[in-house]
Amino acid sequence: MLALRHARRAGSHTHARTFAAVSSSINPSGVGPFQVFDRNAKRLQKDRAVARDGGERSRTVDYVRNEVADRLMERFMDIKRKFETVLDLGSGAGHFSKLLEEDKAGKVTMLDLSGKMVERDPDSEFEVAVDRGVLDEEHLLQSIPPNSQEAIVSCLSLHWVNDLPGVLVQIREALKPDGVFIGALFGGDTLFELRTALQLAEVEREGGISPHVSPMANPRDMSNLMSRAGFTLLTVDVDEVRIGYPSMWELLDDLRDMGESNAIIGRRHFVPRDTLAAASAIYQQLHGEDAGVPATFQVIYMIGWKPAPNQPRPLERGSGDTNLKTVL
């Protein structure tokens, strides 16, 4: 059985996994951004999530992404411009793209790490023409030429990217001058209830902790990252989506079906039963409400523009000809 599993893995993917931590090739002595997430494991998790019950489970757990896509669309609609093409980066099954209307966009290109995820839903669910492709967000410029896009959208995929500043730079490069990037990603307070419950359980039962919930971007850092990547006219805001679950177990099931299981390099592949049961008890007591337990998803929304000469910009310092003193 074991040999068979390995043979199948080796056949379908170029990286054969032996036992533990890393499923993609990572060169520890190479230069480059620090690797936190196992991108290959993430792709496998998403593929499997879509394959479960013929996609039924995956559709059931769309609620977080649909809600955030809806809120992101509100911000998108505030931009008074019609785009010929929109690039949906890390589109998932197209939660955002499905909301696009014909008077706003002519065509949308959906790109995702997981080919099965991007193909999940038929074209009939979209109002605008759809193009689909498989692309690792970390290597955007390998497939998308610079200065080619009018608008790039990313709805809840950038939290699995190792080099967030680098991806933001690539997005800015891929945009045409005066092109817009509008995105949503999970912020640092996401799933803090689960994080604390698992940490307390591991400390009390086993005497140590290991990473279960990803490190995520701090909302205060986002505007710095955006301006460092060369975007102008920034808007960054933070919002929360709180979902109630009967217990920790349903949350874990749904996270897995979303393809959002742990993909940190060096994660534990096995958590003892005792620790899980302890975490469930702690989650209930520490964060529980009458009818179950809450889970918080913190979402950072950001809008940035690629600089262009025709954009509004602040006037030269000292060029004002009205004295504020006389007005006030």
Partner: peptide, 30 residues
């Protein structure tokens, strides 16, 4: 395990959770 930890053994689960919450700023092994 999910069912037993939340339903069948709810009483013991609550007792354990309460113990942790009472000391959660300084939890040690065991």
């Amino acid at each position: 395990l999910a069912v037993h930890s939340t339903t069948t053994c709810a009483e013991q689960s609550v007792a354990y959770g309460k113990c942790i919450v009472a000391t959660y700023t300084d939890v040690q092994k065991d």
